[in-house]
Amino acid sequence: MLPHQSSSGSRPLEFHANDIPDLYAALDNLLAQIPRGSVTTYGDLARALGDVKAARWIGERLLHHDHGPHCPCHRVVRKDGSPGLYVTGDADEKLALLRSEGVTIEDGRVTPDFRADQFATDHPLRSLRELQRRVPHELTLTPPVDEPRTIGGLDVAYVDARTAVAAYVQLDAHTLETLWEATLTLPVRFPYVSGYLAFRELPALLDLADHARREEHWADLVFVDGNGILHPRRAGIAACFGLLSETPTIGIGKTLLCGTVDLAEMPADQPRMIVHDDEPLGAALKCRDASRPFFASPGNLLTMEETVRWSRHCLTDHRLPEPIHRADRLSKRAVRDAGRNDA
């Protein structure tokens, strides 16, 4: 993948699949550092990874991992010292293991003593967050040079936690006829952590974009399942993807990630702006008056006005714009096929 050439004159923003850390391996490394007789918290592990937002994923991961007789996962508790859930389903077993290692337990609680700053770590999420902070300064939110003749839709679905299917559909921009479609199945090295969706799905989307370009079916404007600048750091997956692929993009969110918008009695023919930190970042739209809204935002190389115009143009009988609806349907079909092949 080529680096994006910065228009600001700063060092080019580079991104490669190898830049994404294996967070599963990073967590295992941290767990191995907790000494016998010591206890840490989910939050401390998350801070050692670089962002406390990872605490929820850590809790879920420790409930569903390859657990052996010498696994140190029992040395992780909640911030109040209560044991929390345990992989075996028995929290008392967790406390019994801690007691056998010399940890003092009072009223079913322990005192965490191994804190975030005691881990040897390179804080992998911190470097990704720094990369996200650069993205908004590199985006170009201007109208496309030419009127799009083709429109694309990108979506990612999951066979399991470690296997993704990326789907792409190309449509005629005016008739919305499907012209071409493709899927790729790829391994996943990064879990879902709130605010970091881009790093879970970008490798698959960029590989699929390269494939579509080689086949000469890359669209002039691409809808991405996920947010554009409608993101706490203005760096949703549609923004990152649009920047790195040098493609005009629109992000389509099914839930409101950030910002405020008045949805009361909202009719389908009146999009409403979403504001975050006093800045308009996207628009809420509906297919029909009775439909649930979706949330569109520019990714790259597109204005807010064009984002709303093309989002409305691509609405038919489905809740979401047709490029996203068809890419979603294609990815789910590929996941079902993969499941049947594994049976």
Rank of each mutant, 00 (worst) to 15 (best):
L221N: 11
L221K: 04
L221I: 13
L221E: 14
L221G: 12
V222S: 15
V222G: 14
V222T: 15
V222P: 11
V222R: 08
V222C: 15
F223H: 07
F223M: 14
F223P: 07
F223G: 10
F223I: 14
V224F: 10
V224L: 10
V224M: 10
D225W: 04
D225T: 15
G226C: 03
G226T: 02
G226N: 02
N227F: 08
N227M: 10
N227S: 15
G228F: 00
G228D: 06
G228K: 00
G228S: 06
G228E: 03
I229G: 01
I229K: 03
I229W: 02
I229R: 05
L230P: 06
L230E: 06
L230D: 04
H231R: 01
H231D: 14
H231W: 07
H231Y: 09
H231E: 12
H231T: 11
H231Q: 09
H231F: 08
P232A: 11
P232F: 09
P232V: 12
P232R: 05
R233K: 10
R233H: 11
R233W: 05
R233N: 11
R233I: 10
R233L: 15
R233D: 13
R234V: 03
R234I: 03
R234H: 11
R234T: 08
A235C: 13
A235T: 08
A235W: 04
A235H: 04
G236D: 11
G236K: 02
G236F: 04
G236V: 08
I237L: 13
I237N: 02
A238K: 01
A238P: 02
A238H: 04
A238I: 09
A239K: 02
A239R: 02
C240T: 10
C240W: 04
C240F: 13
C240E: 07
C240M: 14
C240N: 11
F241S: 09
G242I: 08
G242K: 06
G242C: 09
G242M: 07
G242V: 07
G242Y: 08
L243G: 00
L243V: 05
L243H: 01
L243D: 00
L243Q: 00
L244P: 00
L244H: 14
L244G: 06
L244F: 15
S245Q: 14
S245K: 09
S245E: 14
S245H: 11
E246S: 15
E246K: 13
E246P: 00
E246T: 15
E246Y: 06
T247S: 15
T247F: 04
T247G: 10
T247A: 15
T247K: 07
P248A: 13
P248I: 11
P248M: 11
P248W: 06
P248T: 12
T249M: 04
T249N: 07
I250R: 00
I250S: 03
I250G: 03
I250V: 12
G251F: 00
G251T: 01
G251K: 00
I252A: 09
G253S: 14
G253R: 01
G253A: 15
G253V: 03
G253E: 02
